[in-house]
């Protein structure tokens, strides 16, 4: 009996350690640790404000949308189609938590339209092959940038731009780090791009 208990305890510990390593999988890459940390801190904030339903709670719902967008970006940097798909699903779900109560009528309309297109891009990223994911991600980046203009974001973001995307049409994305890690090409052209604009934290 005692043996059985001990074995099951060991199994639980083993299982826990696996799930923990799985969650922290990417944090061993130094370039990600910065963004991962901020993501975690965002989640903590969310946990703290979740009960109070204050204005801070709302701004956090908006930051979660941006955080999921950044998770899509990080997956595409790593050519990780499944990761991008998972993050895109989370992005779509997080849109449901947004409240439009404090917005004026025109802002509310604009926000509804933004949510509508972010949702559509998210759904397409969730179900597509990586090339198509990237096409939608490039468009999504512009909409997320407009979204941030409305909601603000509590960390500095860098709008980065690679002129080679889409046969020379160019494409932009947002990043928490100034370093260029190109999500539109991934490993094929990781370093292509430059910071085009700095969006200060609000």
């Amino acid at each position: 009996m005692k043996k059985v208990k001990l074995t099951s305890l060991m199994l639980i510990v083993f299982g826990l350690s696996i799930s923990l390593t799985a969650c922290g999988g990417s944090s061993s890459n130094d370039h990600n640790s910065e963004e991962d940390d901020s993501h975690n801190s965002m989640e903590n904030n969310h946990a703290e404000t979740a009960h109070t339903e204050t204005a801070t709670g709302e701004s956090t719902a908006a930051s979660m949308v941006v955080n999921h967008y950044l998770a899509v970006k990080n997956a595409l940097v790593e050519d990780n189609k499944d990761g991008a798909s998972k993050a895109a699903n989370e992005l779509v779900t997080s849109l449901n938590d947004l409240s439009k109560e404090d917005l004026s009528e025109t802002e509310r309309k604009e926000m509804s339209e933004l949510i509508e297109v972010i949702k559509e891009h998210g759904e397409h990223i969730a179900k597509s092959e990586i090339e198509h994911q990237r096409e939608h991600f490039a468009m999504l980046s512009n909409d997320i940038s407009d979204f941030i203009k409305m909601t603000g974001f509590d960390q500095t973001l860098y709008m980065q731009y690679c002129p080679m995307f889409d046969g020379g049409k160019g494409g932009a994305w947002l990043s928490l780090s100034e370093d260029i890690k190109n999500p539109l090409f991934g490993s094929r052209m990781l370093k292509c791009g430059a910071v085009k604009e700095t969006i200060e934290a609000i």
């Binding site: 339209e113 297109v117 090339e131 468009m139």
Partner: peptide, 19 residues
């Protein structure tokens, strides 16, 4: 469609036809 959605659809048409 909203003008934002129109842009999305127009961009997608171009991508789909081009690809």
């Amino acid at each position: 469609y909203s003008s934002r959605m129109k842009n999305l659809k127009l961009n997608s048409i171009v991508n789909q036809v081009k690809d």
